[in-house]
Design a binder for these strands. Structure first.
Length: 480
RNA sequence: GCCCCCGUCGUCUAACGGUUAGGACACCAGUCUUUCAAGCUGGCGGUAGGAGUUCGAUUCUCCUCGGGGGCGCCA
């Protein structure tokens, strides 16, 4: 029986978790959870300079919001520098790597020449054959880098997503693995770390495809088997260009603050480049885990469709218990002065029923907050468009609302059937359609032309609030 | 310029070489209804183009066109 897989997510600390990175993390995580494997988190921070704790913080926050948990780490690539150097030493000793004394200016020239000649590899290999004793001696006084000696032939691998991928080694230059300052470069460090962490599957963005042959050759030179590779397609903006800030939000944190549920985000991200066997689209995280497999990931880049994200998020909101939604939305309602902590505590069942009413109508939590506002005893603002449409003739509206108010204030039962029949009877007495009462009433008690069913709204609002809203609406109309 | 990869409705996608090319978002219409959603029903819309292999091609091969990624002492 095969060992359980070990995968890793290895972001560089750019300061936030990008949606592309988030999806890569998600795929790694779903795979690990589905297979009962291990997810390692490794921060690719060869740059020691910048305050990494600050920058990695944002990434960890993003991951934890999404619920992506790791089993090992976070490790820091920079911590492995001695091991990286030891690996470079081994490669040097075996002749798989060599010292290069070329200057940046010389390299610049070589690049020009290569381009002119239509060659893929820029470096011309001029330090390849410097005898090792000579190189050793010069290294004492001259600055040098260490380059990997690319062998002849082809490098081929079976990519889980990309299938058979083949590169001609002659198209790949002898790349630098150790800088002049003695620090390792990415390609060396990645291999060294993945080896150290016994990574079995490298699941990463397709932008790494062209690094893969280099890394495979390092594995070989070290005498070790490369892991299985799985390159997931990139995410594009609506214009087909690589997703960037000008397309709008790219950091997952921004989606969090604009009211997306992590389950909706995960669902959407999972569907970007992956699909289950059947046509199921709305899935909770555990269902994603149950159904996920790397071999159903698509090859071509996917466009980030914000509309669909919103729809999916709306589905998740509707499927989330009102209790849970109350928790998610509570603090911002308090912060914006809509309610207080005490009220939410003492009227929690009531608040649940409010959410029951509005949650199929909201696509984001922010929208949910908006729809919930009128139910709290705060002043409502009358939407100008609604006023224009349903309060066209103030005297008429005042008259109707007044009559309605006195009906509603009578001792009758405050239930839906009763309210509806009351209103309809009144409308008939006044010789108008029920809508002529309902619409102005809606504007009066919600401030808007749009709301859940008016009778449900009144029930949940309660008689007291409804009557006072009508009062202030009448005052507002008289003042106008 | 060179290297790698990709091309199914506008978008996300399904389809052992044999389906009337399926689903979803968006859009349109209908239904429900006091409004808006949700729900339900229906509609619009696609295999980039051209050769070839095959009884049969979305699927395999080649070319063209189009798109993406990579060509750092960045990761």
């Amino acid at each position: 029986m095969a060992d359980s897989p070990r995968v890793r997510f290895a972001p560089s600390p750019t300061g936030f978790l990008h949606v592309g990175g988030a999806r890569t993390a998600l795929f790694n995580w779903l795979f690990a959870r589905h297979e009962g494997g291990i997810l390692v988190l490794r921060i690719e921070d060869t740059d020691r300079e910048r305050s990494q704790s600050e920058l990695t913080r944002a990434i960890l926050d993003g991951l934890s919001w999404l619920g992506i948990t790791w089993d090992e780490g976070p490790y820091h690539q920079a911590d492995g520098i001695e091991r990286h150097r030891a690996d470079v030493r081994r490669l040097l000793d075996s002749g798989a790597a060599y010292r290069c004394f070329c200057t940046p200016e010389q390299l610049e020239e070589m690049r020009d020449v290569a381009r002119e000649k239509g060659r893929a590899a820029a470096y011309d290999g001029r330090c390849r054959d410097i005898p090792s004793d000579e190189a050793e001696r010069r290294a004492g006084t001259e600055p040098f880098t260490v380059r990997f000696r690319m062998p002849g032939g082809d490098t081929v691998w079976e990519d889980i997503v990309g299938g058979t991928v083949r590169f001609k080694n002659s198209d790949i230059e002898d790349f630098i693995i150790l800088r002049t300052d003695g620090t390792p470069t990415y390609n060396l460090a990645v291999v060294s770390d993945d080896l150290e962490m016994r990574i079995s599957h490298v699941v990463r963005g397709a932008d790494h495809v062209s690094n893969t042959p280099k890394q495979i050759q390092i594995y070989r030179a070290l005498g070790l088997e490369p892991p299985i590779f799985c390159h997931v397609p990139l995410i594009m903006g609506p214009d087909g260009k690589r997703l960037s800030k000008r397309h709008g939000a790219t950091a997952v944190g921004e989606y969090r603050t604009s009211g997306f549920l992590s389950s909706g985000m995960n669902n959407f991200l999972a569907l970007l480049g992956w699909s289950p066997k059947d046509d199921t689209e709305v899935m909770e995280v555990d269902e994603l885990i149950a159904r996920f497999s790397l071999d159903r990931i698509n090859v071509k880049p996917a466009v980030f469709d914000h509309e669909k994200l919103e729809w999916l998020n709306g589905q998740h909101i509707a499927n989330t218990s009102s209790r849970r939604l109350a928790e998610l939305v509570g603090s911002t309602l308090i912060k914006t002065g809509v309610t207080t902590e005490e009220e939410l505590k003492t009227r929690s069942e009531w608040f649940d029923s409010v959410l029951d009413l509005v949650k199929t109508r909201a696509r984001t939590l922010n929208e949910l907050c908006e729809r919930v506002r009128p139910f709290f005893s705060i002043d409502v603002e009358f939407d100008p468009a609604a006023v224009k449409k349903h309060w066209k003739h103030p005297e008429e509206v005042i008259d109707r609302l007044s009559k309605l108010r006195s009906e509603l204030s009578k001792e009758d039962e405050w239930n839906e059937e009763e309210l509806e029949s009351q209103l309809r009877v009144l409308a008939e007495l006044m010789g108008v359609g029920a809508g002529k009462l309902i619409h102005p009433l809606r504007v009066a008690i919600t401030g808007s032309a749009v709301s859940p069913g008016i009778f449900e709204v009144m029930i949940v609002m309660g008689r007291e609030l409804v009557l006072s809203r009508i009062d202030s609406a009448i005052r507002h109309l008289e003042g106008a």
